[in-house]
Amino acid sequence: MKKQSLPELQKICSQLRRDVLRMVHAVQSGHPGAPLGCAEYFVALYFDQLHHNSNFQMNGKGEDLFFLSNGHLSAGWYSVLARSGYFPVAELKTFRKLNSRLQGHPATHEHLPGIRIASGSLGQGLSVALGIAQTKKLDKDSSLVHVLMGDGELQEGQVWEAAMYAAHYGMDNVIATVDYNGQQIDGPTVKIMDLKNLKAKWEAFGWEVIETKEGNDLASVIAGLEKAKSLTGKGKPILNLLYTEMGYGVDFMVGTHKWHGSPPNDEQLALALGQLEETIGDY
Protein backbone atom coordinates (compact mmCIF):
# COMPACT_ATOMS: atom_id res chain seq x y z
CA MET A 1 0.00 0.00 0.00
CA LYS A 2 1.32 3.45 -0.96
CA LYS A 3 1.84 5.62 2.09
CA GLN A 4 -0.58 8.48 2.45
CA SER A 5 0.10 12.00 3.65
CA LEU A 6 -0.66 13.13 7.18
CA PRO A 7 -3.79 15.10 6.20
CA GLU A 8 -5.09 12.09 4.30
CA LEU A 9 -4.49 9.84 7.31
CA GLN A 10 -6.19 12.36 9.56
CA LYS A 11 -9.27 12.08 7.37
CA ILE A 12 -9.28 8.33 7.94
CA CYS A 13 -9.12 8.90 11.71
CA SER A 14 -12.22 11.04 11.54
CA GLN A 15 -13.98 8.42 9.43
CA LEU A 16 -12.95 5.64 11.83
CA ARG A 17 -14.52 7.57 14.70
CA ARG A 18 -17.73 8.00 12.71
CA ASP A 19 -17.74 4.28 11.92
CA VAL A 20 -17.30 3.34 15.59
CA LEU A 21 -20.12 5.60 16.77
CA ARG A 22 -22.51 4.53 14.03
CA MET A 23 -21.72 0.85 14.60
CA VAL A 24 -22.35 0.87 18.36
CA HIS A 25 -25.36 3.15 17.93
CA ALA A 26 -26.96 0.83 15.38
CA VAL A 27 -27.04 -2.10 17.79
CA GLN A 28 -27.19 -0.02 20.98
CA SER A 29 -24.31 -2.01 22.41
CA GLY A 30 -20.54 -2.11 22.29
CA HIS A 31 -17.63 -0.03 23.50
CA PRO A 32 -17.13 3.37 21.85
CA GLY A 33 -14.80 5.12 24.34
CA ALA A 34 -11.50 3.33 23.89
CA PRO A 35 -11.59 2.96 20.08
CA LEU A 36 -12.28 6.69 19.79
CA GLY A 37 -9.10 7.22 21.80
CA CYS A 38 -7.11 4.76 19.70
CA ALA A 39 -8.14 6.01 16.24
CA GLU A 40 -4.72 7.55 15.57
CA TYR A 41 -2.95 4.39 16.71
CA PHE A 42 -5.08 2.13 14.52
CA VAL A 43 -4.66 4.35 11.46
CA ALA A 44 -0.92 4.86 12.02
CA LEU A 45 -0.45 1.13 12.36
CA TYR A 46 -2.49 -0.09 9.40
CA PHE A 47 -1.92 2.76 6.97
CA ASP A 48 1.68 3.66 7.79
CA GLN A 49 3.55 1.09 9.86
CA LEU A 50 2.59 -2.51 9.20
CA HIS A 51 4.15 -4.32 6.29
CA HIS A 52 1.27 -6.64 5.67
CA ASN A 53 0.14 -8.71 2.73
CA SER A 54 -2.94 -7.73 0.82
CA ASN A 55 -4.10 -11.34 0.77
CA PHE A 56 -4.87 -12.40 4.31
CA GLN A 57 -3.02 -15.49 5.47
CA MET A 58 -3.73 -16.93 8.87
CA ASN A 59 -0.13 -17.96 9.59
CA GLY A 60 1.17 -14.42 8.99
CA LYS A 61 4.47 -15.61 7.56
CA GLY A 62 6.73 -12.83 6.32
CA GLU A 63 4.46 -9.97 7.34
CA ASP A 64 4.07 -7.69 10.34
CA LEU A 65 1.21 -8.74 12.58
CA PHE A 66 -1.17 -7.02 14.94
CA PHE A 67 -3.07 -8.52 17.86
CA LEU A 68 -5.83 -6.73 19.74
CA SER A 69 -5.63 -8.04 23.28
CA ASN A 70 -8.34 -5.70 24.59
CA GLY A 71 -10.93 -7.17 22.26
CA HIS A 72 -13.69 -4.78 23.30
CA LEU A 73 -12.09 -2.21 20.97
CA SER A 74 -13.46 -4.38 18.15
CA ALA A 75 -15.48 -1.58 16.49
CA GLY A 76 -12.29 0.44 15.93
CA TRP A 77 -10.33 -2.56 14.73
CA TYR A 78 -13.07 -3.67 12.34
CA SER A 79 -13.25 -0.17 10.92
CA VAL A 80 -9.52 0.08 10.25
CA LEU A 81 -9.44 -3.44 8.80
CA ALA A 82 -12.27 -2.64 6.42
CA ARG A 83 -10.90 0.78 5.53
CA SER A 84 -7.47 -0.75 4.77
CA GLY A 85 -8.96 -3.37 2.49
CA TYR A 86 -9.29 -6.57 4.52
CA PHE A 87 -13.03 -6.87 3.88
CA PRO A 88 -15.81 -4.76 2.35
CA VAL A 89 -16.57 -1.55 4.22
CA ALA A 90 -20.30 -2.27 3.83
CA GLU A 91 -19.89 -5.25 6.13
CA LEU A 92 -19.41 -2.86 9.08
CA LYS A 93 -23.18 -2.57 9.21
CA THR A 94 -23.40 -6.21 10.37
CA PHE A 95 -21.43 -5.47 13.57
CA ARG A 96 -22.80 -7.45 16.54
CA LYS A 97 -25.74 -8.75 14.54
CA LEU A 98 -26.82 -12.36 14.15
CA ASN A 99 -24.79 -14.36 11.60
CA SER A 100 -22.17 -11.63 11.28
CA ARG A 101 -18.44 -12.16 10.94
CA LEU A 102 -18.07 -9.02 13.07
CA GLN A 103 -18.70 -10.56 16.48
CA GLY A 104 -19.05 -8.38 19.56
CA HIS A 105 -15.51 -9.35 20.42
CA PRO A 106 -13.11 -10.56 17.71
CA ALA A 107 -13.43 -14.22 16.75
CA THR A 108 -11.84 -16.46 14.17
CA HIS A 109 -14.52 -19.04 13.51
CA GLU A 110 -16.33 -16.90 10.96
CA HIS A 111 -13.05 -16.31 9.16
CA LEU A 112 -13.04 -12.54 9.11
CA PRO A 113 -9.81 -11.53 7.34
CA GLY A 114 -7.39 -9.80 9.68
CA ILE A 115 -8.41 -11.71 12.82
CA ARG A 116 -6.07 -14.47 13.92
CA ILE A 117 -7.21 -15.21 17.46
CA ALA A 118 -10.24 -14.53 19.62
CA SER A 119 -9.90 -11.84 22.27
CA GLY A 120 -12.22 -10.26 24.78
CA SER A 121 -11.38 -12.11 27.94
CA LEU A 122 -8.54 -9.81 28.93
CA GLY A 123 -4.86 -10.46 29.46
CA GLN A 124 -4.27 -13.11 26.82
CA GLY A 125 -3.12 -11.20 23.74
CA LEU A 126 0.47 -10.56 24.76
CA SER A 127 1.06 -14.27 25.32
CA VAL A 128 -0.35 -15.13 21.90
CA ALA A 129 1.71 -12.38 20.26
CA LEU A 130 4.84 -13.72 21.95
CA GLY A 131 4.03 -17.23 20.77
CA ILE A 132 3.92 -16.27 17.12
CA ALA A 133 6.88 -13.92 17.58
CA GLN A 134 8.82 -16.90 18.91
CA THR A 135 7.77 -18.83 15.81
CA LYS A 136 9.04 -16.00 13.62
CA LYS A 137 12.40 -16.21 15.36
CA LEU A 138 12.52 -19.98 14.82
CA ASP A 139 11.71 -19.49 11.15
CA LYS A 140 14.20 -16.61 10.70
CA ASP A 141 11.31 -14.34 9.75
CA SER A 142 12.36 -10.77 10.58
CA SER A 143 8.91 -9.17 10.51
CA LEU A 144 7.44 -7.62 13.67
CA VAL A 145 4.55 -8.41 15.98
CA HIS A 146 2.44 -5.62 17.47
CA VAL A 147 -0.07 -6.00 20.25
CA LEU A 148 -2.38 -3.49 21.90
CA MET A 149 -3.47 -3.80 25.52
CA GLY A 150 -5.62 -1.58 27.67
CA ASP A 151 -4.13 -0.02 30.79
CA GLY A 152 -6.87 -1.52 32.95
CA GLU A 153 -6.06 -4.84 31.33
CA LEU A 154 -2.65 -4.73 32.99
CA GLN A 155 -4.43 -5.67 36.21
CA GLU A 156 -4.61 -9.22 34.82
CA GLY A 157 -1.80 -11.41 36.17
CA GLN A 158 -1.19 -13.20 32.89
CA VAL A 159 0.17 -9.97 31.38
CA TRP A 160 3.03 -10.05 33.85
CA GLU A 161 3.72 -13.72 33.25
CA ALA A 162 4.08 -12.81 29.58
CA ALA A 163 6.15 -9.72 30.39
CA MET A 164 8.62 -11.87 32.29
CA TYR A 165 8.81 -14.41 29.47
CA ALA A 166 9.41 -11.73 26.83
CA ALA A 167 12.41 -10.29 28.62
CA HIS A 168 13.83 -13.71 29.51
CA TYR A 169 13.72 -14.83 25.88
CA GLY A 170 14.80 -11.46 24.48
CA MET A 171 11.67 -11.03 22.36
CA ASP A 172 12.96 -8.00 20.50
CA ASN A 173 10.58 -8.50 17.58
CA VAL A 174 7.57 -7.51 19.67
CA ILE A 175 6.16 -4.02 20.16
CA ALA A 176 3.48 -3.93 22.83
CA THR A 177 1.44 -0.75 23.09
CA VAL A 178 -0.57 0.15 26.16
CA ASP A 179 -3.60 2.37 25.63
CA TYR A 180 -2.83 4.57 28.62
CA ASN A 181 -6.11 6.43 29.01
CA GLY A 182 -6.42 6.05 32.76
CA GLN A 183 -9.99 4.77 32.53
CA GLN A 184 -11.68 1.44 32.97
CA ILE A 185 -15.29 0.36 33.02
CA ASP A 186 -15.95 1.13 36.70
CA GLY A 187 -14.02 4.41 36.77
CA PRO A 188 -10.54 5.92 36.65
CA THR A 189 -7.75 3.37 37.08
CA VAL A 190 -6.30 5.37 39.98
CA LYS A 191 -9.51 4.73 41.91
CA ILE A 192 -10.25 1.19 40.77
CA MET A 193 -6.77 -0.33 41.00
CA ASP A 194 -3.93 2.10 40.78
CA LEU A 195 -1.34 1.12 38.17
CA LYS A 196 1.23 3.38 39.85
CA ASN A 197 4.42 3.84 37.86
CA LEU A 198 3.86 1.82 34.72
CA LYS A 199 7.07 2.90 33.05
CA ALA A 200 9.13 1.75 36.03
CA LYS A 201 7.15 -1.48 36.24
CA TRP A 202 7.83 -2.47 32.63
CA GLU A 203 11.45 -1.40 32.88
CA ALA A 204 11.84 -3.49 36.01
CA PHE A 205 10.47 -6.45 34.03
CA GLY A 206 13.27 -5.96 31.52
CA TRP A 207 11.49 -4.10 28.74
CA GLU A 208 12.64 -1.10 26.73
CA VAL A 209 9.96 1.51 27.40
CA ILE A 210 9.09 4.49 25.24
CA GLU A 211 6.42 7.04 25.99
CA THR A 212 4.16 8.55 23.35
CA LYS A 213 2.79 11.50 25.29
CA GLU A 214 0.46 12.76 22.55
CA GLY A 215 -1.42 9.59 21.70
CA ASN A 216 -4.17 11.50 19.89
CA ASP A 217 -1.77 13.42 17.69
CA LEU A 218 -1.20 11.38 14.55
CA ALA A 219 2.32 12.64 13.85
CA SER A 220 3.36 11.86 17.43
CA VAL A 221 1.84 8.38 17.26
CA ILE A 222 3.69 7.62 14.02
CA ALA A 223 6.92 9.02 15.47
CA GLY A 224 6.46 6.86 18.56
CA LEU A 225 5.92 3.71 16.52
CA GLU A 226 8.95 4.59 14.36
CA LYS A 227 11.04 4.98 17.47
CA ALA A 228 9.74 1.68 18.80
CA LYS A 229 10.66 0.00 15.52
CA SER A 230 14.15 1.46 15.67
CA LEU A 231 14.63 -0.21 19.05
CA THR A 232 13.70 -3.70 17.85
CA GLY A 233 16.38 -6.30 17.23
CA LYS A 234 18.41 -5.20 20.22
CA GLY A 235 17.62 -8.05 22.59
CA LYS A 236 14.75 -6.47 24.51
CA PRO A 237 10.98 -6.35 24.00
CA ILE A 238 9.55 -2.87 23.40
CA LEU A 239 6.73 -1.28 25.38
CA ASN A 240 5.04 1.79 23.96
CA LEU A 241 3.10 3.74 26.61
CA LEU A 242 0.54 5.53 24.49
CA TYR A 243 -1.11 8.38 26.39
CA THR A 244 -4.60 8.74 24.95
CA GLU A 245 -7.93 10.15 26.01
CA MET A 246 -10.88 7.82 26.09
CA GLY A 247 -13.64 9.20 23.88
CA TYR A 248 -11.31 11.58 22.01
CA GLY A 249 -12.89 13.55 19.17
CA VAL A 250 -16.30 14.11 20.76
CA ASP A 251 -16.45 16.87 23.36
CA PHE A 252 -19.01 15.26 25.63
CA MET A 253 -17.36 11.82 25.53
CA VAL A 254 -13.73 12.72 26.08
CA GLY A 255 -11.79 11.89 29.22
CA THR A 256 -14.40 9.88 31.11
CA HIS A 257 -15.11 6.18 31.64
CA LYS A 258 -18.82 6.82 31.10
CA TRP A 259 -18.58 5.91 27.40
CA HIS A 260 -16.44 2.85 27.93
CA GLY A 261 -19.29 0.47 27.29
CA SER A 262 -22.31 2.65 26.54
CA PRO A 263 -23.61 3.54 23.07
CA PRO A 264 -24.96 7.00 22.22
CA ASN A 265 -28.69 7.48 21.65
CA ASP A 266 -30.06 9.11 18.47
CA GLU A 267 -29.61 12.66 19.72
CA GLN A 268 -26.13 12.02 21.12
CA LEU A 269 -25.08 10.33 17.89
CA ALA A 270 -26.21 13.33 15.85
CA LEU A 271 -24.31 15.68 18.15
CA ALA A 272 -21.18 13.52 18.00
CA LEU A 273 -21.24 13.09 14.24
CA GLY A 274 -21.57 16.85 13.94
CA GLN A 275 -18.08 17.07 15.43
CA LEU A 276 -16.54 14.46 13.12
CA GLU A 277 -16.25 15.17 9.44
CA GLU A 278 -17.38 12.51 6.98
CA THR A 279 -14.25 12.24 4.87
CA ILE A 280 -13.97 9.06 2.85
CA GLY A 281 -17.63 8.11 3.03
CA ASP A 282 -19.83 6.46 5.67
CA TYR A 283 -20.43 2.75 5.20
Binding site: R116, G123, Q124, L126, S127, G131, T135, Q158, A162
Partner: peptide, 16 residues
Protein backbone atom coordinates in the same frame (compact mmCIF):
# COMPACT_ATOMS: atom_id res chain seq x y z
CA UNK B 1 3.24 -19.44 34.44
CA UNK B 2 0.66 -21.76 32.91
CA UNK B 3 -1.69 -19.08 31.58
CA UNK B 4 1.11 -17.55 29.56
CA UNK B 5 2.16 -21.00 28.38
CA UNK B 6 -1.27 -21.69 26.90
CA UNK B 7 -1.29 -18.32 25.12
CA UNK B 8 2.23 -18.89 23.80
CA UNK B 9 1.20 -22.30 22.50
CA UNK B 10 -1.80 -20.77 20.73
CA UNK B 11 0.50 -18.21 19.09
CA UNK B 12 2.97 -20.88 18.04
CA UNK B 13 0.17 -22.97 16.53
CA UNK B 14 -0.97 -19.88 14.67
CA UNK B 15 2.50 -19.57 13.19
CA UNK B 16 2.38 -23.15 11.91
Amino acid sequence: AEANMIGLAAGMALGG
